[in-house]
């Protein structure tokens, strides 16, 4: 038996998140044809913001994958199924076996799958005789191999995969409006999966970042990673909201705030603190900290402008902005 590979699938690390993998899958399948920041925005991904209080490197991936990724697909009309769990539990082999079946049958349908392999990667093929999958991780251009038996056995204790089944028709403007409601939800509501003592979410993430920077109580490599990933998210948010204003002129002001926010993050990325030691944040001076104060103000203004713009639909959801 020979290899079965979906050769049109591409993986580009740009959003530095799950979005990169999802985009690669959906574009190859013809299920998404807009630029990547549109996917980051329509799924709400670029509005997610949570950090470890000492800015550990897991800040960008410590969130409820099961909840977030399923909602992400639902917002854009993609029917998906997924599983996530620890890879050291007694039942893990049962789920691993099913994961192999699900991903293979997805490839047989001509659809790649997303898999956690200590980062989100795209599984784009398999070889039955060799009992292995092919995957792209965006780091090396070549496809890599993963034996069926190794699936989910990561350095991190997590196994997760998502496969995609159908595409439903959606109305872009409605999707944009909903994504803005979800942005408000994310800015104001903590991820209840994350212990509040160790993590901060939404706009309060700025308090945690500022505390960490001012006290010096942070992980230098983790801080660099955290800031880089969220700078990519804010860049996506700025581009998304700018495109969105094309569909929805009334949202121009929202786009203005996110543009300002993205500029601030570009400045942060350009600082000496982010560039003097490769892959690590150097001790921040006051101008660096000021940029985060400014970013908090810009992002707070952005959320306020969404609340004004969507005053009525938000009010109709009472205390539960996120519940569609």
């Amino acid at each position: 038996m020979s290899a079965s590979i979906l050769s049109s699938v591409q993986f580009r690390a740009e959003s530095l998140s799950f979005t990169d993998a999802l985009y690669g899958v959906l574009v190859a399948k013809g299920w998404f044809s807009l630029p990547k920041p549109m996917l980051a925005g329509m799924t709400g991904a670029c509005f997610r913001f949570s950090v470890h209080r000492q800015l550990h490197a897991d800040s960008a991936t410590a969130y409820n994958w099961m909840a977030e990724h399923l909602v992400a697909c639902d917002l854009i009309g993609v029917i998906a199924s997924q599983w996530g769990g620890y890879n050291f539990t007694p039942t893990f082999p049962l789920y691993q076996r099913q994961a192999v079946r699900d991903i293979k049958s997805s490839i047989d349908r001509g659809t790649a799958a997303v898999l956690w392999k200590d980062r989100f990667v795209i599984v784009n093929g398999y070889h039955e005789a060799k009992q292995l999958f092919y995957y792209l991780d965006g780091r090396s251009a070549a496809v890599q191999e993963l034996s069926f038996g190794e699936l989910g056995l990561n350095q991190t204790p997590y196994c997760y995969y998502q496969v995609y089944e159908h595409l439903l028709e959606t109305d872009v403007l409605q999707v944009i409006k909903e994504s803005y409601m979800q942005a408000v939800f994310r800015a104001e509501t903590p991820d209840i999966m994350l212990p509040g003592t160790d993590y901060a979410c939404g706009l309060s993430a700025y308090d945690a970042i500022l505390n960490a920077l001012q006290s010096g109580n942070y992980d230098a490599a983790g801080a660099y990673e955290t800031i880089s990933v969220y700078a990519a998210a804010k860049r996506d948010a700025a581009q998304y909201t700018r495109y969105a204003a094309g569909y929805w002129p009334a949202s121009q002001e929202v786009a203005g705030h996110y543009a300002e926010l993205a500029v601030l993050y570009e400045k942060i990325l350009d600082t000496a603190e982010m560039n003097s030691t490769p892959g690590a944040l150097s001790e921040p001076c006051s101008s660096f900290i000021d940029l985060f104060h400014a970013a908090r103000a810009a992002e707070t203004a952005a959320i306020r402008s969404i609340r004004t713009l969507l005053h009525e639909p938000i009010a109709n959801r009472f205390h539960d902005v996120g519940l569609r």
Binding site: D58, T61, A62, Y63, N64, W65, M66, A67, V71, G84, G85, Y86, F88, T89, P157, Y158, Y160, Q182, F185, T189, D191, I192, M193, L194, P195, D198, Y199, D320, G322, L323, R324
Partner: peptide, 16 residues
């Protein structure tokens, strides 16, 4: 208790 000494990536969430 390894499960509970880690931060999961699933579990408790707000309905949406």
């Amino acid at each position: 208790d390894r499960k509970r000494s880690l931060v999961p990536r699933w579990g408790a969430h707000t309905a949406r």
